[in-house]
């Protein structure tokens, strides 16, 4: 081993080439193959005859797909805004010289170590109207207390929002807190000398300076939204009815349970296109900054 190692030249490019070949095959090759399948009528096994955009037409006339997309938008907007607001608020408060900061931080962040499956199960148990929170409130005397969103098709999606904010707020807090700690003390001194109220200092000086930090939080949260699968499986299974279906689950269901390879591939390609559109501004600015 060691003599073999020594005989090689100093060639990082060879290593890069080997790894990149693997990534190119499994990531980009797979995408091409999936795209190809989305242009065919494949069901259980691949059918290689191209029929054009039929699957995309079917997809966008499929009620369940349209509901899935709409759900993702509603969920995504509320989840991202909610997580940002809660996470930033926690970071700002944690940065005000509080006692037991590390204890609070540990509590706020631990959900991130918990899988989304367990997150979903726990919240399902907690919000189950017959045994969870609602039952507790009624037991202790508040007879009219009602919180049955989990079982209502017009509200169930909000319970997913609550559970996923619980899961990710700590992430935003840690990232924003790291940003706040990086702020120059002189800036704070200047703010104090000018007598600017604290809330205005945050809104007009501190946060605008932290735009890249907040942007990377948004990017992380967006990719969570598009990938969202485990939480739905554990918490609502897409129900009641199809009220909490989302694209990631639609694609997996059609790949495996409903064996419709063509339609599932079309759905996956749409998910990919959506990810790239949402991430394009970020990558563009990153790339320009670096070169």
């Amino acid at each position: 081993m060691s003599t073999w190692l020594n005989r090689q030249a100093f060639r990082p490019d060879v290593t890069v080439a080997v790894f990149f070949a693997v990534v190119a095959l499994f990531f980009y090759g797979s995408i091409l193959w999936t795209f190809y399948m989305s242009l065919t009528r494949s069901t259980l096994i691949p059918n290689y005859q191209i029929v054009g955009l039929d699957q995309y037409v079917k997809l966008f006339t499929n009620q369940r797909w349209l509901v899935s997309c709409l759900n993702m938008v509603v969920f995504g907007v509320l989840y991202i805004l909610g997580t940002l607001a809660f996470g930033i608020l926690l970071a700002v408060l944690a940065d005000r010289n509080i006692k037991a900061e590390s204890l609070f931080r540990t509590i706020f962040l631990y959900p991130l170590a918990v899988s989304l499956i367990i997150t979903g199960l726990s919240w399902r148990w907690l919000l189950d109207p017959t045994t969870g929170l609602q039952a507790l409130m009624r037991d202790i005397g508040w007879e009219s207390f009602t919180f049955d969103w989990l079982t209502r098709s017009d509200r169930a999606i909000y319970t997913l929002v609550i559970a996923s904010i619980w899961h990710s707020a700590g992430l935003v807090m840690v990232i924003v807190l790291a940003g706040l700690r990086g702020i120059d003390n002189d800036l704070w001194k200047a703010i104090r000398m000018e007598g600017i109220p604290l809330w205005r200092a945050y809104c007009q000086v501190i946060f605008p300076g932290m735009r890249p930090v907040i942007a990377s939080c948004v990017v992380l949260l967006m990719s969570e939204v598009i990938r969202g699968y485990d939480l739905i499986i554990a918490m609502t299974k897409g129900g009641p009815g199809i009220s909490t279906e989302m694209p990631a689950k639609f694609a997996v269901d059609f790949y495996f349970a409903r064996v419709n390879l063509g339609l599932a591939s079309a759905a996956s390609i749409m998910m990919l296109v959506l990810s790239l559109i949402m991430l394009a501004p970020y990558f563009y600015s990153e790339f320009r900054r670096r070169t």
């Binding site: 990534v23 980009y28 797979s30 995408i31 598009i226 996956s268």
Partner: peptide
């Protein structure tokens, strides 16, 4: 740099767009 960009984009590719070919 270009390869790094392509690898980074790989982070954001939904698994669904790679699952079936990987199975294959």
């Amino acid at each position: 740099n270009m390869i790094m960009l392509l690898i980074t984009v790989g982070l954001f590719i939904p698994y669904q767009a790679m699952l079936y070919p990987t199975v294959k």
